[in-house]
């Protein structure tokens, strides 16, 4: 097989020699052919011109602009995040303050209500005692008046009765004594 390969290579070299007349003989494959050199130079220059003048500045510009835009967006996002956190903290503080304030107001209201309740109860108690006392006074006065009236009418009636019984025989002096004695008797009734 190796012999066949060697033979093939030999034949190929001969064939190449025939096909490419003017080539450097069996060096065909490794001899730099001018027909390949100068077109490569021209191609390189054309491509370099296109890339250098137009394509690369545009693409690199895009990459740089995009990188800048991304950096800017990230920085902005960071700023926004910090600001949002600050606001959240502030709002939290405000809510806590408001809650404390509300608690204080409710406490105060409760205290006021409590004191008002006590005041009202006290007032009512006082008033009720006053009313009872007044009533008692009124009753006492009524009783006294009734007794006085009773004394007067009893004296009159007794005098009339006694006068009728004794007739006109009783002197003025005896009359007076009789009345006093009677009064004393009636008065002692009142003491019981």
């Amino acid at each position: 097989m190796f012999i066949e390969f060697a033979y093939a290579a030999e034949q190929a070299a001969e064939h190449g020699e025939e096909a490419a007349e003017g080539l450097a003989g069996t060096l065909g494959a490794v001899y730099p052919n001018p027909a390949d050199i100068w077109p490569t130079w021209v191609a390189f220059l054309i491509l370099f011109f296109v890339l250098y003048k137009f394509a690369f500045p545009m693409i690199v510009g895009m990459l740089d602009k995009r990188a800048a835009a991304i950096k800017e967006s990230l920085e902005k996002a960071e700023d926004t995040r910090v600001e949002a956190e600050r606001l959240l903290e502030e709002y939290k503080k405000q809510v806590a303050e408001a809650r404390a304030e509300a608690g204080k107001i409710v406490d105060q209201g409760r205290k006021v209500a409590e004191s008002m309740k006590e005041e009202i109860i006290a007032k009512a108690n006082e008033e009720s005692t006053q009313i009872v006392a007044k009533a008692r006074e009124a009753v006492e006065a009524e009783k006294k008046a009734a007794l006085a009236e009773l004394q007067a009418s009893i004296a009159d009636v007794s005098v009339a009765v006694a006068g009728k019984l004794l007739g006109e025989t009783l002197s003025a002096e005896d009359h007076a004594k009789l009345i006093d004695r009677y009064i004393a008797e009636v008065g002692s009734l009142n003491d019981n």
């Binding site: 066949e4 390969f5 093939a8 290579a9 190929a12 064939h15 190449g16 490419a20």
Partner: peptide, 18 residues
């Protein structure tokens, strides 16, 4: 295998500057 040398020769020829 008889055709192999011919094929190799063709291949090398194809790859030379023409």
């Amino acid at each position: 295998m008889d055709l192999l040398p011919e094929k190799i020769e063709h291949l090398v020829h194809e790859l030379s500057v023409l």
